[in-house]
Nucleic acid binder design. Structure first.
Length: 301
DNA sequence: GACGCGTGGGG
DNA sequence: TCCCCAAGCGT
């Protein structure tokens, strides 16, 4: 590939589509949310869970979730705290709350059917640019630029010739993604999932398997000799000793309790009372924890 | 645009 | 071991 997609001849772009889609047809993982009978709701559930959580850990949680709540209305009829409890240890439990909120909105505003319209998807809690495009593309087979971390990395390497994309998505990346989109809806949807899968399985962040890459001969990064990342330091995630860690410990107690939780049960999970109180306040402010009387808490109802 | 937000696994 | 990463979102 070359520096910008727009400089490619139309025939070259179509060949690129065939290359990646052909690779996908023989290498794609057999994931349940890609099954032909997966509902739009199932696709949406998978997308929420996959926001920053690896596929392997999502698989069992996804199955249990849909078993319990096979429709948006089923989830909406339950308490948000039940969603938080069911979320278990997937991480970022606000996603569970937002998924519940999305189910309520779908039930109230869309007659219980996940909307196919991109703008309506985007208006749902917890649905951002990526998730709206992913659901519209994967569940409804529409033509959208689906830009996740995998796709961004594939484009950074194959198109731009750098090892990693910038920290935040740029206008140039959106333009590239749009320009490389196949013309037809169905083919665009397959292309979207195929590029993502290539990034997940071959063009990985660490230890990419370039030898098995269908784009080896077309890759700008390969052609440049696979230069290492040069840009600004990529944002690290500190965790030990942070409020996040304390929130996680507090919420774990709430999740595992069957009913009300007394202050004393929370106090034992973290020695610093000031930080502990701040973390608990944050959980309450986020709607993840509900105070019920003095020194008593529970998951929200 | 930069942060804050969980949790676990692979190199 | 430690560090980095994992189909992002909301503020």
């Amino acid at each position: 590939m070359v520096a910008t997609a727009s400089t490619l001849a139309p025939g070259a772009v179509q060949a690129l589509h065939s290359t990646v889609i052909g690779w996908y047809e023989t290498h794609a993982r057999d994931l349940p949310w890609r099954a032909p009978d997966a509902s739009p709701w199932a696709v949406m559930v998978s997308e929420f869970m996959l926001q920053q959580t690896p596929v392997k850990r999502v698989l069992p949680a996804y199955a249990a979730w849909l078993e319990r709540w096979p429709t948006p209305a089923a989830l909406a009829a339950d308490a948000p705290g039940e969603a938080v409890r069911m979320w278990g240890r997937l991480g970022y439990p606000r996603r569970a709350l937002r998924l519940h909120g999305a189910a309520v909105a779908i039930t109230e505003r869309h007659g219980g059917e996940v909307p196919a319209d991109h703008a309506e998807l985007l208006a749902l809690p917890g649905v951002g640019e990526y998730t709206a495009a992913a659901v519209a593309s994967f569940a409804f087979r529409q033509r959208h630029a689906v830009l996740d971390t995998n796709v961004r990395r594939v484009f950074a390497r194959a198109v731009t010739g750098v090892e990693y994309p910038a920290n935040a998505t740029t206008a140039a990346e959106r333009r590239t993604a749009r320009e490389l989109l196949p013309a037809g809806d169905e083919r665009a949807a397959t292309w979207a999932v195929a590029v993502m899968e290539l990034g997940a399985l071959v063009c990985t962040a660490r230890g990419p398997e370039c030898g098995g890459c269908p784009l080896l001969a077309d890759c700008a990064w390969q052609r440049a000799g696979r230069p290492p990342y040069q840009g600004p330091a990529r944002r690290g995630q500190t965790y030990e000793g942070t409020d996040r860690q304390v929130r996680g410990k507090l919420l774990a107690v709430l999740r595992e309790a069957t009913g009300l939780v007394a202050q004393g049960q929370l106090d034992v999970v973290w020695p610093d009372a000031v930080q502990r109180a701040r973390a608990l306040d944050g959980l309450v402010a986020d709607g993840l924890v509900e105070p019920v009387g003095p020194g008593t808490y529970r998951l929200p109802r």
